[in-house]
Nucleic acid binder design. Structure first.
Lengths: 155, 155
DNA sequence: TTAAATGTGGAGTCATTTACTCCACAAAGG
DNA sequence: CCTTTGTGGAGTAAATGACTCCACATTTAA
């Protein structure tokens, strides 16, 4: 249950772009430095975003990247899918080709519900929320502790 | 964004145990066969569940595993933590030791919110929901139901 | 007391995926 | 043209995930 670095990098880079004055471009090497992402890897990340239509690139001198849509219209869902494609929480989720069971297994419904919950958040969170310095992302939970703040039975 | 097989196996195995008549045990090799999990790997999975206090094991002839709590009291959250520890969606989530930025980054709030959403589902989903043939996972279905076959827990 | 059936512990191996690099090339502009 | 930008994709390295193995401890029953 972990997000890939590629996705994280993509988000960071888009935030960077979203903070630029409208229409301005940022070069790969600038984004790389400011977001602390390896240059050559970032190049690959950005290509995904270009292909997905989230940013445009211009070549040659004074080239670079810029958002193709207003920040309020770029959702995390779009970014996720640009980087990873359709979300599948377990191997057998949609394709079902290697599902170990012929009939639907008991947990299928939970995985689906879980994915929906995640996707809902991804859909409703836009770059605009992230670009703002104090994002008002209701319901965030500041609790944090080292290991499981949920009691383990016995043990 | 994917759940590990270990976690999936753990859930399947617990469902298997939850479907047994109260107090009955199942041996490793039986669970392995019925849930299609490699035996030697399952052994490791089960040890995690034992350590976490979700199941008890008995050695020797006629030994095996059985639930230590009624299915309605075993949440997916407990299972998750037994297998994976505290959830961290991105590398820098709690420890923050390798966070690339000194001040909180823009997306931290979303990751936290996301984790909360997932954990909420994990907390409110119990083994009882999965053991039932037609799980009604619609809402957070508070404890109700005809006394499960664990009416008087303890055993 | 022995033997067989069970789980335990953990080191070790194999496989897959993730993260990242490199380099030749194409487009744009001076 | 030459430099500066991104592009494409093959290739490599590192990390993690998935799984195996085997010696050992415990329990029960012959």
């Amino acid at each position: 249950m972990q997000l890939s670095k590629g996705f994280d990098y993509a988000v960071r880079s888009l935030v960077h772009l979203g903070r630029l004055p409208e229409g301005a471009t940022a070069e790969l090497r600038v984004i790389s430095a400011s977001q602390k992402v390896p240059l050559s890897y970032l190049a690959k990340v950005m290509r995904n975003l270009v292909r997905a239509g989230l940013v445009t690139s211009t070549l040659g001198r004074d080239g670079g990247y810029r958002l193709r849509l207003p920040p309020g219209e770029i959702t995390l869902m779009m970014v996720y899918e640009a980087m990873e494609g359709r979300m599948r929480l377990v191997a057998c989720m949609d394709g079902a080709k290697d599902c170990a069971f012929l009939t639907k297994c008991a947990q299928a419904a939970v995985w689906t519900r879980l994915r929906k919950a995640v996707e809902d958040i991804f859909v409703e969170t836009t770059l605009r929320d992230l670009v703002a310095d104090s994002p008002h992302l209701g319901g965030s939970d500041p609790v944090s502790s080292k290991e499981g703040h949920y009691a383990r039975a016995g043990a």
